[in-house]
Amino acid sequence: MFQVRIHGRGGQGVVTAAEMLSVAAFLEGRSAQAFPSFGSERMGAPVMAFCRIDTREIRLREPIADPDALIVQDPTLLYQASVFEGLSPEGFLLVNSGRDPESLGIGEVLARLPAGHMVAVPATELALEHVGRPLPNAVLLGAFCALTGAVGLESLAKAIRDRFPGDVGERNVGAARAAFELVASKGSGMEGAARHVQTA
């Protein structure tokens, strides 16, 4: 089983990101379960969403306390200690930021992760460029595909189009591809992730 926890703020499409990720995995014939952190938070409040991916039926209903991957949609959340809670030592970390990972002030976390398991992507900027709106969720999922290999980019593209039909979907797919290329060009730990999924 591969478990993903997504942190962001209300209004950033955190729940939609988990949903699209689960659809992408579903399209690849796997079981997937996506669910929100069940709050009544308004716009701007810290929120979480979860996604589990497995080759077998997923029965577990507890929140994800020990994720294999973390997606942080809003870098201002990096300084809440609980964001990194339970992250697997072999896990992946994806942060929405245009800054160099070393300058994010999370050195302690980076030190624990294997090389190539952390990447920062300027997702908001890419979203503005491609979609015209500062919604980083689809962009980050593109980067997530490249970083973890947990789902394929084409499945993700289809999931995005399912969720956002028409032009908006195409633009988001374009943004996700751009992020994928960006991460792929940096060389990430896809192999490890693929192994992880298979042995789950």
């Binding site: 996506a34 669910f35 929100p36 997923i58 209903r61």
Partner: peptide
Amino acid sequence: VDGFILTHAFER
């Protein structure tokens, strides 16, 4: 139907 746990969960 369990609120949120099922109502808000995406699954197959």
